[in-house]
Design a binder for these strands. Structure first.
Lengths: 210, 210
DNA sequence: TCCGGCTGTCTGACCGGTCAGTCAGGAGCC
DNA sequence: GGCTCCTGACTGACCGGTCAGACAGCCGGA
């Protein structure tokens, strides 16, 4: 699969009205999770009728899919900007982790959405979600690989296999978020997890001889 | 919270019949996820009536809870045995990861269940699932801490903070499983992820001076 | 040995509620 | 009139949970 195909999978044309509705949907995901979120609840929150959602998106699944696409595109852009602005490999890691750990509120929404996406993707019946999940994973892994390989070339990082290192970085980030989500008071623990994440990645990548 | 409290949360008395039903339920989770699994489907798979499930467990939630408890207790015992049999810190990591990466089929079931547990735990309304999730997390983290601190005392591992290292180990394991779950052909990738897991943990813990 | 009552296990039929999706039609605008 | 945007009322499917009662085994008494 080429990068073009992946990007195509994420690209989508949404009208201004649709973006409004997608935004409302996204805001609600954190509290209930998509599965428990009825169209009626979304409609109420948006101040419109339930039928309007179906008018604009046809099916609930399409609304959910559009919401996820919208979120993932934003996330990718956000991380991309962060690493592009960094001048050294260490700075890139720092900026990237900062870009990922934005705020407790935002991360709660984002990872809840990610979990919902995974849930849908694991349902093999649903090809759309599976492909969306794959697209996002491919894109993000490429970002991680870029950061690692820059560091390896600069002699700051050690990695026997850049792709594997990217996978591990991804695992550290996602795994920490999984635990963070379960904290009794996520907001209080947010900055601590961000620091743990930075230290863990550095410990993993740091060249002992460097 | 003392270790006793945690263990109490996991302990439960199940009749032989209940264990039968729990086993059937667990077997079905991998394919559909608990949420999409109706009592009728479980009953059909078990060859009994739906009403029987309610007779033995009262509510669907209780059946799900019992299934999760049963699975988590088994998992904890399994890991515990693995690390107890190891003679060196490196061997302990190796045995532990092997104990976690049992087989593609089993891991699919287990992590699907974990995701379902997380999903329920994030629904703040549901105190039972939140506490079960906490109990399991506490127990597993203690196991990880034990392995790390043994290695630190033996001079094999380096860790500025044992609890933090345990968190990171957990993140690596869980994060890798998250990605493994999304692989196109999980069965084929299983042993590769297991090896990546071992290497990642070793790279993270390895004392550069050792 | 037979009988009547009791208990624990199990079931089919049914109920109430929820929810995605349909449809006929209204309001404003060109 | 025709178009887009929008709505309230409705439908059909599904699902968790209830309930009255069936059935088998057991126990104590005659």
């Amino acid at each position: 699969m080429s990068a073009g195909d992946v990007a195509d999978d994420l690209r989508e044309e949404l009208s201004a009205r649709q973006v409004d509705l997608v935004r409302v949907t996204y805001r609600l995901i954190a509290t209930r999770g998509i599965r428990r979120l009825s169209l009626q609840e979304i409609a109420d929150a948006a101040g419109v009728s339930k039928a309007l959602l179906l008018y604009h998106f046809g099916r609930k699944e399409a609304l959910v899919l559009a919401t996820m696409r919208w979120v993932l595109v934003s996330a990718e852009r956000h991380i991309r900007r962060a690493i592009d602005g960094a001048r050294t490999p260490d700075e890139a890691i720092d900026a990237m982790v900062d870009a990922i750990f934005t705020s407790a509120e935002e991360n709660l929404r984002f990872y809840r959405t990610q979990l919902d996406l995974l849930d849908h993707a694991l349902d093999q019946r649903d090809d759309h979600f599976e492909r969306l999940s794959l697209s996002y994973r491919t894109i993000v892994n490429a970002l991680y690989e870029e950061v690692v390989s820059r560091g390896v070339r600069a002699g700051s990082f050690q990695a026997r296999d850049v792709a594997e290192a990217a996978t591990v970085l991804r695992a550290i980030v996602d795994g920490l978020f999984l635990q963070w989500l379960q904290e009794a008071r996520p907001a209080d623990a947010h900055s601590r997890y961000r620091d743990v994440c930075k230290r863990a990645i550095m410990a993993y990548l740091r060249d002992p001889g460097g």
